[in-house]
Design a protein around this nucleic acid. Structure first.
Lengths: 119, 119
DNA sequence: CATTTATATCGTCATATAGCGATAAAGCAA
DNA sequence: TTGCTTTATCGCTATATGACGATATAAATG
């Protein structure tokens, strides 16, 4: 292994690896990007359709799509004047499903706590 | 590669839900927080131990731990003057493992592409 | 070539936050 | 009480980035 400099951490993950992992999670850390991914889950959509569905501006949607594309989470293909976007990494569905399930569990737990015996 | 059919449910998520999911991913979007979680994976650690292991300042570590605690990913317990931290949500391990595996696959793919015949 | 459509990029502003030093708060020892 | 340890919080600066408007690029159309 190259003389990879580690701060002093007894970790198996290098600084570079942590940066890469963090950047992937960062791509999923904005509601607008999650909304775009949600719109893409049933199948591919054009940028224009995403603009309409998301209710945001075209420039903003384009920039968020660029972030998702750089993170490797979506792919694009051009067809005539339009650009179709599609989820390119199945990890997106898994990650979001996991997070949704976990949140639902927590919400239901809190709801029970509130409805059962609200002090 | 053509777009892949999703097996996910046609989830239409509210703004509140998207915000919640995004905030969870945002907690994982910083290398320092991932490092702290990595330090906690073998077992609980005090804040001081995490400060030493992470190589960052005490104030910074404390703030990052607060973010992780608010996201429900770690828990804390006080023992004397020390605060012990531990991973409170098993989803952390799953998410990080998934992301690591995916990144390793991509890296190896790119490495092969570079070593095979770099024009 | 000019125009329309579809998308990307740029400039700017406002906000969020990472990192740092100083300090406060809480517990323990003498 | 004082002093030490441990952790949390405050104030600050620098940077990153989301949202928006304007503009640029590219393809299709007339």
């Amino acid at each position: 292994m190259p003389p990879k400099k580690s701060t002093s951490a007894p970790l198996h993950l290098s600084d570079t690896a942590l940066e890469l992992i963090a950047s992937r999670f960062r791509a999923l850390s904005e509601p607008m990007r999650l909304r775009l991914l949600s719109c893409l889950m049933p199948g591919e959509r054009t940028v224009g359709q995403l603009v309409e569905a998301s209710g945001s501006g075209q420039a903003n949607v384009s920039k968020h799509l660029a972030v998702l594309r750089e993170a490797g989470m979506i792919g694009t293909r051009k067809e005539g004047p339009s650009t179709f976007c599609f989820i390119a990494d199945p990890i997106v569905n898994e990650l979001c499903d996991m997070m949704c399930c976990r949140l639902r569990e927590e919400m239901e737990g809190k709801a029970r706590a509130l409805t059962s015996r609200a002090g």
